[in-house]
């Protein structure tokens, strides 16, 4: 199998994730979309590692996974806190940090 298919899949996944972040208001969904984009990036790393026959891409993928795991912990905590204070999981609700 050529790398093209993997890269195409990664592109599709990334686009879905990006669209999700930009179009959906629910924080949880936006969060999941971010995870999707990270995984699309991971897929590209792994594909490249396989394609070039070097291990660097796999290491990068692991680092991204670790960061994503840490991010989940903090991100979910923030979302829960916002839900408690505003009774909503919409990411439009906490809009105080603006002009």
């Amino acid at each position: 199998m050529s790398a093209d298919a993997y890269l195409t899949l990664a592109g599709v996944l990334f686009s879905i994730g990006l669209a999700g972040v930009m179009l959906r208001r629910n924080s949880i969904v936006a969060f999941m979309s971010i995870e999707l984009m990270l995984n699309a990036a991971n897929l590209v790393f792994v594909t490249a590692a396989r394609y070039w026959g070097v291990i660097d891409g796999q290491i990068a993928a692991f680092i991204v996974m670790v960061v994503a795991a840490a991010e989940v912990v903090i991100g979910l905590a923030i979302i829960v806190t916002i839900y408690r204070t505003r009774n909503s999981a919409s990411d439009d609700a906490p809009n105080l940090l603006r002009w």
Partner: peptide, 17 residues
């Protein structure tokens, strides 16, 4: 320029994209 700071995460994401 400060009008760009809308407070909506989506618009920031759009700028980044």
């Amino acid at each position: 320029l400060r009008r760009l700071q809308t407070g909506y995460i989506r618009s920031y994401a759009m700028f980044v994209a």
